[in-house]
Design a protein around this nucleic acid. Sequence first.
DNA 1: TGATCTTTTGTACGATAGTACAAATCACAT
DNA 2: ATGTGATTTGTACTATCGTACAAAAGATCA
Lengths: 236, 236
Amino acid sequence: MVRKPTSKETARKPNMREAILAAAEELFAINGFNAVSVRDIAQAAGANPGSVTYHFKTKDGLLLEIYRRHCGPMNLRRSELLAAARRVRDLQDRLEAVVRAYVVPAFTSGSDLAGGGARFTRLRAVMSAEGNEVARKIIAQTFDDTSHAFIDAIHESLPHIPRTDIVWRSHFLLGALYYSLVTPDRVSRLSRGEADGGDAASAIEQLVQATVASFQAPPLDHAAPARRRPVVSSKT
Amino acid sequence: MVRKPTSKETARKPNMREAILAAAEELFAINGFNAVSVRDIAQAAGANPGSVTYHFKTKDGLLLEIYRRHCGPMNLRRSELLAAARRVRDLQDRLEAVVRAYVVPAFTSGSDLAGGGARFTRLRAVMSAEGNEVARKIIAQTFDDTSHAFIDAIHESLPHIPRTDIVWRSHFLLGALYYSLVTPDRVSRLSRGEADGGDAASAIEQLVQATVASFQAPPLDHAAPARRRPVVSSKT
DNA sequence: TGATCTTTTGTACGATAGTACAAATCACAT
DNA sequence: ATGTGATTTGTACTATCGTACAAAAGATCA
């Protein structure tokens, strides 16, 4: 008889805890935290509502565990890719590699969770929009380090751009990334079917290319707006 | 003796209907649709919960009315600015003007609502993330025309870029725009206080500049992406 | 097998949700 | 001042929320 697990950390044969986590992740990512009830999650997971309470104590605890599951692997993968990107000699290529190291793990999973990267990133996007408190705390203390590392790496490739501008542009990158995962159908619609907003590979390439170009844009902090004239004038 | 209003369309002296709309708009934009109760809105507006039902019938009806209030003016202003931008001769300047015509009304109000532009745009961002049904319907039938007009205008300035790429990049623009309004504090935090994410003027300039550069990036549709050397450079 | 621990189930409780509706109140034309 | 229609108030109803908890069921090992 095969018997590998000790009694302490085993769950049932069909792992209910995991099923609940997966169902919650999916539902939260699509509908937001507040619109999904514990009963909805339980039903989607084929579990009893009480099981959710048993495994995660509260609804917040469930969300917290989802974050714990993904943050580690994703940031680890980002660190690896970032380290590799830093070793690229050509500054131009390095910039692209760094951006790619930031973007790719958000679309594709960082570890055992297959294809869960995009789902979790979408979850983060939605929680961010909802101003979810649990998420806010985790984000600030888990992702800011990573964000700083990327900003520094980008700054390394573009020393002549003020750090402030890089912060703004990397912020735009994250916004674009989030939005691409939240409403991919809009891309399909506006392109009249010529593009598939749900295609991760396309999204990544488009995003990386557009973002690299935006980082390379000339800085504007320099208090010298003489170059361009005020273009807008239509109001009375 | 002042007598301007006819009895038919007047509300109370302190216009309750407007107060409710304003309160709802603010609360929805910050916390999302589902997290805000009708009672929350009524309290914030200094009204009775029943008044909300009286004026707007349902909570969905209230959201619908908020959209009706803003969509017209904002799209009107965008059309004006877009028309003006189209008249700019220099292609480079025209591109920037077009982008600005898209961005500016989202941050600043389009009509009588003072400063409400950013709030409403943030509301749209949050509703989009939550997958709100009421919002989805209105968006598709109200904003897609505008979006197409902008995409076409940009395509005019950049004829060598495939329309598909322009759709993606304008999608990124909207995502960046939304995200800037949803979590401006992140910019302040990551820049270590050097930038104020809440400053609309800075956000607009940064966003316009970054976006123009992203639109100008070389197209990537071209089937064979070997080792490409991007042409964009900032040296003068 | 029986004892013990873990997990699942079922049910219930208090809080709060959206909304309906009658009564009270107000603004204003007559 | 008075009647009338537009608003506001107060309250109540039903549904659903998150969560607690005891009992049932399953697993583990002496």
